[in-house]
Amino acid sequence: MGTVEAAISIRGLSKSYTGRPAVNGLNLTVPRGSFFGFLGPNGAGKTTTIRILMGLAQPDAGEIEVLGLPLPAHATEIKSRIGLVPDETLLFDQLTGGEFLEFTGRMYGLARSVARERSRELLHLFGLGEEDRKLIGEYSKGMRKRVAMAAALIHRPELFLMDEPFEGVDAVGARLMKDILLDQVRRGATIFLTSHVLEVVERLCDRVAIIHHGRVVTEASPAGLLDSGGTLEELFVNTVGAAPAAGAPGWL
């Protein structure tokens, strides 16, 4: 059962693909106003979980509440209150960055004039103001990620679901995105993100969960880890199992 304070509450979530469990009885609570890091090795079930939360995949079993509302019963209301940055940048290649942002704003209920004004401001904020007549299909990977992030912000959501948001973004862009996200948390928004860059998670997140074989195996605060002398990387490697360095072929 979810509580009023939980931005996301997941109980007994399961999802299989062709008989192989991707998520296996997952339980997770993400407090409101937190910067929550969701970590795990490749194939652990992170993306499946986030796709279920986004409504792109149907769970086989389990209960989910997002912002206090059960999913999928209140899917439309939940969608209007969350901002999404999926792992693949989902953008329409034949629109310009500004057109896509305006389109997104209008899809989320903003008036055309408001959406247009905000899209212009966001383009400038993300350093894409000079590219306002360029089609997204011509954008670099980093630019596409910036547009995706701007699209997630345009309707001022209460909860952000982000799958590898910094992947392919240059240092300047990543810094800008981190500052914006921290600012969003300060104003009360919740951020739920997955990332393979553990240093970033360690620096940004106030709560971290590690998923392995479709279940949450560890939940901790990075600050607490640092106090006890450990690092997030050590915790992660110890939890999911270290790669046997001795197993490398001799010629390598």
């Binding site: 986004m54 409504g55 792109l56 439309t76 209301e77 969608k79 209007s80 999404l84 999926p86 693949e88 989902l90 953008l91 329409f92 290649d93 034949q94 997104t104 899809m107 989320y108 209920g109």
Partner: peptide, 16 residues
């Protein structure tokens, strides 16, 4: 067909 992967946006947006 032309939307390809981006067709996911229709499921993500709060639009029928």
């Amino acid at each position: 067909g032309f939307d390809r992967t981006a067709a996911q946006i229709y499921y993500l947006a709060p639009v029928p």
